[in-house]
Each structure stands twice: as structure tokens, then as C-alpha cells.
Design a protein around this nucleic acid. Sequence first.
DNA 1: TAGTCCATGTAAGATGTTACATGATTCA
DNA 2: TGAATCATGTAACATCTTACATGGACTA
Lengths: 188, 188
Amino acid sequence: MIKRNPNSTLAFALLGLIWQEPRSGYDLRKFFSSTPMISFSDSPGAIYPALHRLELRGLVRGHVEERSGLRRRRIFQLTARGRAEFKRWQKQPVKRHDVVRNLDALMLRFAFMDQFAEKGAAFRFLKGLHKELAAYIPSLREYLISNRDYMPQAGRLALESGIQGYEAQLRWTKAAMATYGKTKGERR
Amino acid sequence: MIKRNPNSTLAFALLGLIWQEPRSGYDLRKFFSSTPMISFSDSPGAIYPALHRLELRGLVRGHVEERSGLRRRRIFQLTARGRAEFKRWQKQPVKRHDVVRNLDALMLRFAFMDQFAEKGAAFRFLKGLHKELAAYIPSLREYLISNRDYMPQAGRLALESGIQGYEAQLRWTKAAMATYGKTKGERR
DNA sequence: TAGTCCATGTAAGATGTTACATGATTCA
DNA sequence: TGAATCATGTAACATCTTACATGGACTA
């Protein structure tokens, strides 16, 4: 029977890394702890159960590596199902909800975009992200203007921090689109 | 017996809002869904259980509002323990771990800073945040420089997005410190 | 009377955190 | 021999998500 649970952000991070090259749980933990993907937990209590779930769902397959010395490692690879599921995740349209609640997951999706998604997916993703940011930022600005006088100073500043963060993201999005436009001769 | 569980980010958001003024679960849900705090879930399945936990732990107290018509509301107030717990949370030092894994919670802490924390806490918070950002950003830059050539293009771009987000946060932090310096005559 | 808003709640289920446990190998 | 590193795992616990349930009052 097919499990109908949506995979977590961690699950997709694992799938993406394993697709890049087969890796063990330990490899993945080390990757998280020693690269900017440090924003993911490298705790064994998160990673090993997540890998087992992926295996149960048929998205990865692990096999024990034979080697002398050292404790045996289980190396995981993506299955065809795993690759399909990852692609499905990558090509979902960018929703406001993602921008508001889950920007990190969105950027994770993008990070693997030109390795595993179809041609043009990265550019489409950026266009969608641009659209949602360009719609969301003014609504935050309007809230600030209307409520300035009723908000405590720190609250006001905190909101400005959020707005400026989204504005930086918007600038990045434009620059990234230009990159793809140039590199791939993509047109709107 | 005293419960030793750390409260969640949502729990502290609820405590801060209830401290501002007594509110019902419904008030809190509406606040989340209609302001930039939309980044919190307004789902009843998150909010009502969280309020019950806070009450169990003695951090809030709810009482049923008497009124004709409409269904009764339970209005919550902070207890002395709730206020103490919130202050304790606010004055924790800024750690790199917070910057890397939980920047949103950090900004929530700041958002209530000049209402409920002691004088000078906001400025100290900003100094700590500045220090951690100024230390973390170069380590991301160095990773990018060392690994540029081995990273896929989208991965590189995603990392740049993260760096630029942190840089925007750093600029904001400096500007906010200047605000407090001016307003309060605070000195380093 | 049907729909919408006010208002609070629970149930099932998955995921994540922290802490603990274990065992092999290498190196000082 | 003790410490560090490689390597995988489990247990307890809390929290969150989604979906469902309920019921009063207002209004078109």
C-alpha cells in the first residue's frame, strides 16, 4: 500500500544529497554539520529514522558496504520512485504560503534545481518566487504604515527587519533570473 | 511538580501577545491570520492545546467572560510565573545556534523587547546579534570561495541568497543599534 | 433556511528533540 | 590504555498538522 504522507523538508534534503551521490547516514550527518546546510539538524535521532522512513516508502534503498575494519556502513541510493518524488516536489508552483511560512524549504528546492529538474524549471521557479515576493512585500509595508503608531518600537523594528529580508530575497531573485537568462538563452 | 519542558516559539508568541493585553484563543488566532505574524499557524489544533499547556504550567490563567449572546470566550492573562518565564527567555544571550537554526525566534524575542524586558536589554540583544552575524557571515563566504567550483550553479546561487539574507540582517542590526543609541543615550 | 462568523475543542498521526546505548578502530 | 572518531541505532517525550466536531448568533 502506498503511504500518503507528505515528506518533510529534512526528507527532501536527504533525497537531494543522496541523489547527488550515494551516501550513508553518517555521511549525511557530517555534511549537515560541516557545510552551510548546518541549518539542518545532524542529530542521529533525526537522520536515521528519516532514512528508515524513506526506505519504507520505497524512495531510497540501502545496502551494507563490505570492507575490512571499521563498522559496516549502510549506503543509500535513490530508487526510481525516489527520483520521481523528488522531481514532483521540485516542480510544485511557488505559493504565498511557502514564502510566508517556509522560505527555507523553497530555497532548498532551488538549490538542487539545475541538477535534477527539467530544463527551464529553475527559471520558472524564480519567476514564481518573484511574483509572490512582489505581491507580499507591499502588504507588509502597508501594515507597517497603517499600524506604525500603535506598535511598540521594537515591534516596528522587527517588522522592518522582516521586510528588508524579503527585499533582499527579491533582489537576489532578480539577479538569479538574469543569470539564467544569460546562461541559457531562456526567454520569458 | 515543576514541568521542565522548554516552551516552543509558538508558546512565547502567545505569552507576549497575552502580556500586551488579555486575549482569548480566538483573538490570538485572528491576530496571527491578519498581521505579519501570519508566519505562525492560526490553526485551532495548534493554539488551543498550546494555551492549555501554558495554563497547566501556571504561566497563564484563563477565565470565562460573562456576556449575553454569543458563545462564551476564555480570556487568558499572564501569571507572575508567566511574566518571569518570558523575561528569562528574553534575556538569554544570542548564540550562533539561534542565528543558524532559529532566526525567526530571535526576532520574535526582539519584537517584545522594549515592552517587557529591562532597560538596555534591546541594545544588549542587538550587540549580541551583531557579534554572531559578523562571525557567521565570513564563514559562509569562505565556504563559497573554497567550494565554488565543485558546487552546481543553483547550489551556489542558493548559498548566495542565504549570505545576502544574513547581510541584510546585519545592516538592519546596525541601524537598529543606532536608533537605540540615539533614543536612549545608551553607550557601549 | 442557508451561509457566515464567533468560539472552542479533540483525534490521529508524523516528525523532531534530547539523551542514552553500543561497538569497532585508530592513534598517542 | 584511554580518547577520539567512525557508525548506527532506540526510547521517551513534546509538538505540530490536518481533519473533524459542535454550537450559538446574525443576516440575507
